[in-house]
Amino acid sequence: MTDPAYQRLGLPATASTYAVLRAAVRALHPDTRAVRGFRAARKRFYGQMLCAHAARQAVGDSPTG
């Protein structure tokens, strides 16, 4: 099952890891990105998005929208 947060990024399966990170950063509210205390949570979120993208690429999934 694909992560709903990853699906909201709206990326094709062929997107690079850098594109996934850019989309994940843009998905977060600027106030959330500014809080130093949320750094570990942000890093965990970015890692989850990269893992979901890698899993999708491994399966060869078609784009979802």
Results as ranks from 00 to 15, higher is better:
R22I: 07
T64C: 07
A27W: 08
Q48H: 07
M1A: 14
P12G: 08
K43L: 14
R42V: 03
A5N: 09
L9G: 00
P63N: 06
T32D: 14
P30E: 09
V35K: 13
P30H: 10
T32A: 13
V25Q: 14
A40I: 10
P12C: 05
P30W: 10
V25H: 15
A23Y: 04
P12T: 00
A27I: 01
F45C: 06
L21P: 01
R39V: 10
G37L: 11
H53T: 02
A13M: 11
Y18D: 14
P63M: 04
V25P: 00
R26H: 10
S16L: 03
K43D: 15
S62V: 09
S62C: 06
A54S: 08
F45M: 03
V35M: 08
A15F: 05
G47Y: 00
Q57K: 12
A55M: 09
M49E: 04
A52V: 00
T32S: 12
Q7D: 12
L28G: 02
T2A: 11
R36N: 12
M1W: 08
S62N: 07
V25R: 15
Y46G: 03
D31E: 13
P4A: 08
V59D: 10
V20T: 05
A23E: 04
T32R: 14
T2G: 00
R8G: 04
Q48G: 09
A40W: 00
G65D: 12
C51L: 13
A55F: 06
T2N: 08
L21W: 07
A23T: 01
R22E: 13
C51E: 11
R8W: 02
L28M: 15
V25F: 10
V35I: 12
R56S: 05
A5H: 08
